[in-house]
Amino acid sequence: MIALDDLTCAHGAHPAIRHLTGRFAPGSLTAIVGPNGAGKTTLLRAIAGLHGETTGTITRGGRIAFLPQASTLERAFPLSCADVVAMGAYAASRLFGPAADRNRIAQALATVGLSGYATRLVGTLSGGQFQRLLFARLMLQDAPILLLDEPFANLDTSTTADLMRLLHQWHHAGRTVIAVLHDTVLVEREFPQALLLARDLIAWGSTDTTLTDANLCRARDHAAAWAAGTPPLRDAA
């Protein structure tokens, strides 16, 4: 479970998210959607504890595994795929603890379709293979709450389908899964819950009642008003 109470996040003087209150139920599968600059990534980072300038409270009901946008990683760093998956065990092993079990690493690589890639350098992987690798790392983190920032950006449909299947498996195993996504068609098809954000909360609940045309239109207008420098009054939301 994750509960937000009057959460406001800023980037310097500019609010990125205003007065957000609500909760992600335990075991829910939620997509965070909204126009560019709506504060989606900021919200996810705030929940992960990575955004410094926040007011209000965030209650986290368990350990969190965070999947950053793939573009923020240094892919030229000369690590093998097995090294990257082993990072998932860092919270347990820390500085000098035993390294992650080879079998678990091989199993995680096999699950994401990367059997035989253990010794390959990450710099030689395609974008899709790299994202599969990061999902394998998530498996080793073994956390009850998963936060994913644009997990399907720049992926082809078959990779997206494979990774989506993994998300459903984790969801069915009782984990709370929250993902920032752009593709509303994918969200309508695969995610039972959605949170529509345009710096202010537009709607939050089951996907069919959240991603209505009226709400999406309102989110667009809201974001445009912010971009034009005329922040809408809170009551308008």
Partner: peptide, 11 residues
Amino acid sequence: SFDPDFLRAEA
């Protein structure tokens, strides 16, 4: 070096 956000989130 590889993934600064990951380290911050974990540790």
